[in-house]
Amino acid sequence: MDVDRRGFIKLAGIAFVGLLAAKPIFDVFSRAEAPKIAAETEVSSKIKWGMAIKIGNCKDGCTECITACDNIHNVPDIPDPKHEIKWIWDANYEEVFPEQDSPYIANSLKSLPVLVLCNHCLKPPCCRVCPTGATWKRADGIVMMDYHRCIGCRYCMAGCPYGARSFNWVDPRPYIKTLNPDYPTRTKGVVEKCDFCEERLAKGLIPACVEACTEKVLVFGDLNDPNSDIRKLLATNYSIQRKAELGTGPNIYYVI
């Protein structure tokens, strides 16, 4: 294209006007300013949450802790065992501690119901295998779930040696008796588990299962604080962890 002097000045003028217009147009589309984001994390790394469970102290047939947890967290009650969702539940002693099973196991321990939940491991294998960062270890020891990021690959379920994670094969909503609007439900296709009631801890409350237990079977506290109830209990009693030999560093202690 042949541009003469006159044409060049015209083009330059148009380009200049265009440049002037860019600023107001940019302003219109960028008037949204990003919200202020608070500090990346508010979770204290000085704390290490843990729980002790006194084996054999449960009342016969009592499910107060399980009911409290299920109600608060909208955990569905799905009858099909292949689809069931569990945060805290009970299992027989010899299933919880398979390495302690023997033909001559003490009568007091045989088929004894023992409460089980996520162990909030020191080195959680579930977090190592999660491809999206949907589950991670918080500074205060809680193995946390972000359901927004979970893609339902179930690697974490394969990684967890305790079976503490449940997958939502179906929409859980119809199986929740009474919805607690203060806590979300989950959706089909995500994995869920106990999160030590981190939403209650943030408000200064103790986990719902600990609060609900009338027999004080569950003791919750800061394992880093030598004066905490849990540390005092562990200091004066013999306790075991589930599958400690795997090196996951479980933070649930079973007091015999």
Binding site: P35, A38, E40, T41, E42, V43, M144, D146, H148, A202
Partner: peptide
């Protein structure tokens, strides 16, 4: 940002 603050950061106050 609320979602990230609450779920990822454990901060429930805006």
């Amino acid at each position: 940002s609320w979602r990230n603050q609450a779920v990822r950061g454990g901060n429930y106050t805006y």
